[in-house]
C-alpha cells in the first residue's frame, strides 16, 4: 500500500486521494529544486521501483531517505567518472584551445572522448544495477557485476529501448536547461531588476520540475519493465548475446551524450551540468545561477 493510499483510507478515497497525490506531486516538484532534497526524491523513485518489481511498498520516510542516500552514492560511484572527465575536458580543453597550445591539443578532446566511452560502457549496466538495488533494497546488489551483466543479457533488445527513452525524455529537460539562453528574446526583461529576474527563473525551474517529475517516474517505469523482462528471461547463449548486443546498446546512449554537450554549449551550467544528469543521477533541475542574488 502506498503512502497516498494509507493517508487516504481515513477519508473517503474518491475525495482524499487526488488531494494527497497533488500534495505529493507538489512536494516532489519542490524536491527537484535542490540537490539535497533531490536525494529524498531519489529515495521515493527507488521505493516506487521496488513496489513495481516486488509488489511490496517501502514503509516509512526514513527508509526511503536511506534508499535515496544509498542510490546517490552507488550511482555516483560510476557515473561521476565520465562527469569528472567531461568537466576537465571541456574546461581545460577549451582553455588550451584559447591559448593555442598546439603541443597538447589532443589532451582535451581525448579526455572528453574517454569520458564518453566510459559513459557508453557503463550506462547499460547502471540501469540493471539500479533496478537490482531498488528490487533488493541492498546497495551491494549494485556491485554484483557478474550477476547483473548476466541478467542484462536476458533482455538486450528491451534494454536498447532505454537510451531512446532517456533521450526522448531528456529533450524537455534539454529545453528547460537551454531555454534561459533565449528567454530574453521571449520576454520583456531588459529593464527588470535582479530580483524580478530571479523570481522568473525560479518559476521557470519550478514549472520545469512539474514537467520533470512525471518524466522521471515514467522513465524509471520503463527501466523496471526492462528489468522484469530480464529477470524472467532464460536466454540461450547469454555470453554471445552480451558480446553482440551490449556494444550496440551502449552506442545508443550517445544520443544522451549529444543532448548534454549541445545543451552545455547553449547554456553552460558549469561543472554541475557535467556531473549531474537529472534523469540518471540526482533528480534536481534548479539551475538558477549562483551569482544571481536579490538586488
Amino acid at each position: 500500500m502506498t503512502t497516498a493510499d494509507k493517508t487516504a483510507t481515513s477519508l473517503p478515497q474518491s475525495i482524499a486521494r487526488p488531494f494527497v497525490w497533488l500534495a505529493l506531486f507538489l512536494l516532489a516538484i519542490l524536491a527537484t529544486q535542490s540537490l539535497v532534497t533531490s536525494v529524498v526524491l531519489l529515495g521515493f523513485v527507488y521505493a516506487r521501483m521496488h513496489l513495481r518489481i516486488t509488489g511490496h511498498a517501502v514503509e516509512g520516510l526514513w527508509a526511503k531517505v536511506k534508499l535515496g542516500i544509498a542510490g546517490t552514492l552507488t550511482l555516483a560511484s560510476l557515473t561521476l567518472i565520465p562527469g569528472i572527465l567531461w568537466t576537465f575536458a571541456w574546461q581545460a580543453g577549451w582553455d588550451n584551445s584559447f591559448n593555442k597550445g598546439y603541443e597538447q591539443a589532443t589532451i582535451g578532446p581525448l579526455t572528453g572522448v574517454l569520458g564518453i566511452a566510459i559513459f557508453l560502457l557503463i550506462m547499460p549496466y547502471v540501469q540493471i544495477a539500479q533496478s537490482q538495488h531498488a528490487a533488493t533494497g541492498d546497495w551491494r546488489a549494485f556491485y554484483r557485476f557478474r550477476e547483473n551483466i548476466k541478467l542484462w543479457s536476458g533482455a538486450p533488445i528491451s534494454a536498447a529501448l532505454l537510451p531512446i527513452v532517456y533521450a526522448l525524455a531528456g529533450l524537455p529537460i534539454f529545453l528547460l536547461f537551454a531555454g534561459p539562453t533565449f528567454l530574453p528574446q521571449m520576454t520583456s526583461y531588459a529593464d527588470t531588476t535582479d530580483a524580478e529576474v530571479l523570481a522568473r527563473l525560479r518559476a521557470w525551474y519550478f514549472l520545469g520540475g512539474a514537467l520533470f517529475v512525471p518524466l522521471l517516474f515514467g522513465v524509471k517505469r520503463v527501466v523496471v519493465w526492462v528489468y522484469i523482462r530480464a529477470v524472467v528471461a532464460r536466454p540461450d547463449h547469454p555470453k554471445l548475446r552480451l558480446a553482440i548486443c551490449y556494444p550496440i546498446v551502449a552506442a545508443l546512449w550517445f544520443f544522451v551524450v549529444a543532448e548534454l554537450f549541445i545543451g552545455q554549449f547553449l547554456n553552460n551550467h558549469g561543472p554541475l551540468g557535467w556531473l549531474n544528469l537529472p534523469l540518471i543521477q540526482l533528480p534536481a533541475v534548479n539551475r538558477v545561477p549562483p551569482g544571481l542574488v536579490p538586488g
Binding site: P180, T181, L183, P184, Y189, D194, V197, R200, L201, W204, L266, N267, N268, H269, G270, R287, P289, P290, G291, L292
Partner: peptide
C-alpha cells in the same frame, strides 16, 4: 547581457 544564464555574455 542575459541574467538568466550563469554566463550572461556567453553568446
Amino acid at each position: 547581457s542575459n541574467r538568466f544564464q550563469r554566463i550572461p555574455f556567453q553568446h
